[in-house]
Design a protein around this nucleic acid. Structure first.
Lengths: 327, 327
DNA sequence: TTGTAGGCGTTATCAC
DNA sequence: GTGATAACGCCTACAA
């Protein structure tokens, strides 16, 4: 079967120890044995066994990522950058998509927390995981509050909400609707709603937040957003909490004969590379995804190495000015 | 630190063996010891060590996925489905994004092939990996030719090319341009080009394939596609090899004052859930992504279990009729 | 400069 | 029903 170090040693005529030393470049070795062992490895096509190494070193070189789904551009780009940053630091990535399946999320967390990985980056709610289970493993959260011990990396959601709302008010409209996820979920995206409501109130305008579950299918979302149009037939503008949903709304508006921007203004959220290129006309708030990934990895690695870090990192957002936010 | 089975055994007043039996529900056990051991695990918050298990069982429960990048909707959705299917069969997923970095791809493959995983699903070119290295590990390829031993799962790219080209010809145009990746890469997407050329020739039309590297950034792609418009100022239609690029072309056409579809027809490729909802007006060829994932996992699992499989699976595609393919 | 021995945590075999 | 023991493949004191 697969050759082990002992086979290499035997072939090279040395002991396992010496072969191991060659493998890991440790200690003094004569050029001759060096060559013999290297040759033996070559001819046997030897590759060290990962499990055995992990067992001995008591680390796995793996980081777990738990996110709703990589098929959404925001999480896709985020995971892409996270994987890149982790690779730079010699970590590989185990990924779990938890959308639509709370059991799966719990299951994953339990298994990964059990020592399958050296650390964890989570972007989900983690309901049903007892706090003490986190105690043995470094964890970092992106855009989610997990518990007080776990550092959180997020962009400035409140500022983003202010920028978006302000932009629409500056465009001269007053009947502005906001869409967001269920407020029961204690996610940072709720700060966008808080900002929206604060700014609206500040201007003496009435805030209306339309709640929609992010995990709905496209078909279900379409139906919900059609309801939105029926509930607020005289709305003049929408601040939508992500760009994909904003694009669905653009389609619906089109079907219903409401022209954007002449007849309805729109601001989205996230500003992924993909969506900014696919729908460049959509005004949106850009989250610094790459930077969020960098910092998340930085903080996680520090925690793994036992170095203290801040417990909250809030990164700045930017307004991307498209054509959907002014007439 | 982390409790091991021995600690559990000691606390419960039994041997490691018995504790292990309880853990794995094996053999006969008295209700009393069962309870004692369970209690001990509870109070210690015991979790079995993954590396030790892997070492003993000589399997990892992990499958490696190597794809260009999950930030592209096609691969994002594919990986999402793959992860889902694998989870159903008790496999976790290690992911490597190889875009822009051939060394990283090689590095990943070498490491994963070394036994870090029980199997591999690849969607990249794998240049520079010697064939024999694949010999120890079950591998399945999606949309790529790796080598003769490795089964390939793909959608019917030739048929897709025919459908797209035919659709445009039926719309009454003759100057139809096709875009695709470098033909030096022996990828199945080249069959779309072959189909395009065959159909064009069949109708006595002159095929023109515009080559563009898929791994370019958005900015670079924009520049390239602007060149395309300059090179073929009188083109009447485009068959673009993916939907994201098609959307970039829509933006450029718009900037250049070429109205779609009045002035330029367009057919894309891939038909991901995301793009079909974000740009429903784009006519495209739908690849059966979910099904490709299912079959890939199916075949891989069979190979892991030593069951023979076909060496090629070609899945049917469909035309999604939007508004960009007829006047 | 190289070799011997023991342990990382788990499981299976074989006795009792 | 339960317990010793060896083995999975690698690495590092310690000895030589």
């Amino acid at each position: 079967m697969k050759p082990k170090l002992e086979d290499v040693a035997k072939l090279a005529g040395v002991s396992k120890t010496t072969a191991s030393r060659v493998l890991n470049n440790r200690g003094y070795l004569s050029d001759e044995t060096l060559k013999k062992v290297h040759d033996a490895m070559e001819t046997l096509n030897y590759q060290p066994n990962a499990a055995a190494r992990q067992l001995f070193k008591r680390k796995t070189g793996l980081i777990g990522l738990i996110f709703p789904t990589v098929s959404n551009p925001f999480f896709g780009e985020l995971v892409n950058y996270l994987e890149y940053e982790l690779y730079q630091r010699d970590f590989k990535v185990i990924i779990g998509n938890s959308l639509h399946d709370i059991n799966k999320e719990t299951d994953y967390l339990n298994q990964l927390l059990a020592g399958q990985v050296d650390g964890l980056i989570v972007g989900t709610h983690n309901q049903g995981i007892e706090e003490y289970k986190y105690s043995h493993l470094p964890v970092v959260a992106i855009d989610r509050v997990v518990n007080s011990d776990i550092p959180i990396i997020e962009s400035d959601n409140y500022k983003g909400g202010v920028l978006a709302t302000q932009r629409l008010i500056n465009a001269g409209v007053t009947r502005i609707i906001h869409t967001n996820g269920p407020s029961a979920l204690e996610t940072p995206t709720q700060r966008r709603r808080e900002a929206y409501e604060a700014v609206m109130n500040e201007y003496g305008l009435e805030p209306h937040t339309f709640t929609i579950d992010f995990s709905l299918s496209f078909a279900e979302k379409k139906q919900r957003y059609n309801e939105l149009f029926s509930i607020y037939p005289d709305m003049e503008a929408l601040f939508v909490s992500n760009d994909v949903d904003a694009s669905i709304i653009m389609t619906i508006a089109n079907e219903r004969g409401r022209k954007i921007p002449e007849d309805l203004l729109l601001v989205g959220y996230d500003g992924t590379d993909l969506m900014r290129n696919v729908i460049p006309e959509l005004t949106t708030i850009i989250q610094p995804i790459e930077n969020m990934a960098k910092i998340a990895v930085d903080v996680l690695v520090k925690r793994i190495e036992g170095i203290k870090t801040e417990s909250e990192y809030i990164l700045p957002v930017n307004l991307w000015e498209g054509k959907t936010s002014s007439r």
